[in-house]
Computed example of a mutant assay.
Amino acid sequence: MRRRSAHRVQWSWLGAGLLALAAFGLAPEALAHGVSENDKAFIQGATGVHVAPYVYLGAKHMVTGYDHLLFLVGVIFFLYRLKDVVHYVTLFAIGHSTTLLFGVLTGVHANPLVVDAIIGLSVVYKALDNLGGLKRVIGFDPNPKAAVLIFGFFHGFGLAAKLQELALSRDGLLPNLLSFNVGVEIGQFLALSGILVLMTLWRQTPSFGRSVVVANCALMCAGFVLIGYQLSGLFLERSA
């Protein structure tokens, strides 16, 4: 009996690990995940092509981009087949890659606080979708694949806004930007692999069924905090 109880406690920590990921979204550092001072100094002073550093920066940004990862946790929460995971994550990658490249190369700019608030909304949307509450709130169930792609566009604009703030050199811009995007995909793959391992193990335990509502409510709360943080920043910006 003791062994069984210990086994349940052990596997319950897998669910707690995913909830901890949501909790990271509540930390100020996570809410304002940007580019470190050292990375800023490199980017602003670099000219010419720097493939490896930009791959590293892209991967680092995605791995520390808790808003992106929270959305992906919501997306894959009820995806049990690897084929489905690949399909949805590919749509997300197409979305954020398109607007990342488009935004930086064309100079199209959106207020990063507004974009990040929409990214927070994407987390709320996916958690609510997982709980089956979208139809009650908006009256219908949106196409889940189209929603992931559309929100991917906004996530890409969020990435573009971070780079636009740094005034990248036009010398070597395209290869550096492509390298950064490759890094983003690598970081996404690494982070998602770890999340999938935890999710797969967690799903094999009785605690998963009992924790579905709690986990998605935690995701939703993290999304609302992200929205509130960005909108408060927008209010302060316009009040200054």
Score class of each variant (00 low, 15 high):
Phe154Gly: 11
Val108Glu: 04
Val124Trp: 03
Tyr125Cys: 15
Val35Asn: 00
Lys162Glu: 06
Glu237His: 13
Phe151Gln: 05
Val182Phe: 14
Gly172Trp: 01
Ala167Met: 12
Arg4Ile: 07
Tyr125Met: 15
Leu19Ile: 11
Pro28Ser: 08
Ala160Ile: 08
Phe102Gln: 03
Phe42Gln: 00
Arg170Val: 07
Gln10Met: 08
Met220Tyr: 06
Cys221Ala: 15
Gly209Ala: 11
Val89Ser: 12
Asp171Tyr: 03
Leu100Ala: 09
Ala59Gln: 06
Asp39Met: 01
Gln10Thr: 04
Asn111Asp: 15
Ala215Tyr: 12
Leu21Pro: 02
Ala117Ile: 09
Asp84Thr: 06
Ala215Val: 13
Asn176Arg: 09
Arg4Phe: 02
Phe92Pro: 12
Gly194Trp: 10
Trp202His: 07
Tyr88Ile: 07
Val35Gln: 00
Val197Gln: 08
Gly156Tyr: 10
Val63Phe: 10
Asp129His: 15
Leu168Ser: 03
Arg238Gly: 11
Ala146Asn: 06
Val115Asn: 04
Val9Met: 07
Gly95Cys: 03
Asn216Trp: 12
Ile227Thr: 08
Thr106Leu: 01
Tyr88Ser: 13
Tyr80Asn: 11
Leu18Thr: 00
Ser12Glu: 11
Phe235Asn: 10
Pro142Phe: 14
Gly120Phe: 03
Leu159Asn: 01
Ala22Ile: 04
Arg81Cys: 00
Phe78Ala: 10
Leu219Cys: 11
Leu105Met: 14
Gly172Tyr: 02
Leu113Arg: 12
Leu234Thr: 06
Lys126Glu: 13
Val86Arg: 05
Phe151His: 07
Leu163Asp: 02
Gly58Asn: 01
Leu26Asp: 00
Ile76Asp: 05
Pro28Cys: 09
Phe153Val: 12
Leu166Asp: 01
Pro142His: 12
Gln164Phe: 07
Leu69Gly: 11
Gly17Tyr: 02
Val212Lys: 13
Ser232His: 14
Asp67Phe: 01
Thr205Val: 01
Ala23Leu: 15
Ala167Cys: 08
Lys145Asp: 13
Asn216Leu: 10
Ser36Asn: 02
His7Leu: 14
Leu100Arg: 12
Val213Lys: 14
Ala117His: 09
His7Trp: 13
Leu219Phe: 14
Gly233Cys: 05
Leu173Tyr: 04
Phe71Asp: 00
Pro175Leu: 01
Val104Arg: 11
Ala41Arg: 04
